[in-house]
Design a protein around this nucleic acid. Structure first.
Ligand SMILES: [Mn+2]
Ligand SMILES: [Mn+2]
Ligand SMILES: [Zn+2]
Ligand SMILES: [Zn+2]
Lengths: 144, 144
DNA sequence: ATAAAAATGAGACTTAATCTCATTTATTGT
DNA sequence: ACAATAAATGAGATTAAGTCTCATTTTTAT
């Protein structure tokens, strides 16, 4: 069982009520959620300023991934052992965001290509993000 | 020689002064530029509201690519024959954005993997974006 | 338990992007 | 070429995501 207090302690972040509340909410959902939705879910539990601060804290300790939808909504999701590095697929019809794991073989090819680019541009590449944009067909959860 | 009027005509967009001005500016720079910089460059040539409208027009006809930096600055660049689909490398130290072309072999592998994902999720994938995040070393134009 | 340090809440503030609407410019038909 | 119609623009008001301030509360260290 994933424990919010333990997560905070493990990352040497002080254990406070708002941090626990936000973490539990994110652990509960465990799919990407817009900051806006999160805000309304937690409206009467944490202040807006605090929510943004806690989200920044979680980014700082590297367990929160933040990205934007094509419609420019900010989205966050926890990245933990049970939900590690992955990519996203966006439906421009219904707005759905789908977590996508690339085939291991492909992800390896990508890492190799990244090494080539590191050498070419004299960079140290620490992270990458692959986003796929398209339309779901009639099988999509939201669109059907 | 790339002609802004021709580009507009080819895409069946009416030819107006602000559109020509914005297009010429983007053609001149031909590297990614933040909307903010573009705004100050064109401050006394086109109104802010018009700049945003023209950028949307160019997105609509699919010759303008828009993305955000890790610092949440909106960036645009023209995508034309002489500067086709490519990816980006971001330096978190100096903010530099570098255009990156993946090796053809890799891009092919990626397209194959995308086909697999289309089948898996019953999607039609129309576009993809790969972003690399890291730090330039002492050779970086801005950081040295 | 006490003191020092860190985090929070409430709301003011900033600012990128959108919206409104009167005016100007482009297009279409004759 | 000209008038009529449609589309685009400029100026500035408006919106809203995210940040900032600062008095108060909570956490941590001793
Ligand atoms: Mn995800
Ligand atoms: Mn580019
Ligand atoms: Zn859909
Ligand atoms: Zn750099």
């Amino acid at each position: 069982m994933v424990n919010s207090r333990k997560i905070l302690a493990d990352h040497k972040v002080s254990i406070t009520n708002p941090r626990i509340i936000v973490l539990e909410a994110l652990l509960e959902i465990k799919s990407p959620i817009t900051v806006d939705e999160l805000l309304s879910q937690l409206r009467n539990k944490v202040a807006k300023s605090t929510l943004y601060r806690v989200l920044n804290d979680l980014k700082d300790i590297n367990i929160l991934h933040e990205f934007s939808t094509p419609a420019n909504q900010t989205v966050v999701e926890l990245i933990l052992e049970d939900h590690p590095h992955h990519h996203h697929l966006f439906c421009s019809d219904c707005g759905e965001i789908i977590d996508v794991e690339m085939a291991t073989e492909f992800e390896n090819k990508l890492l190799k290509e990244i090494k080539r680019i590191e050498r070419k541009f004299n960079f140290v590449i620490e992270d990458h993000r692959l986003e796929l944009f398209g339309k779901c067909t009639d099988l999509c959860v939201n669109c059907k």
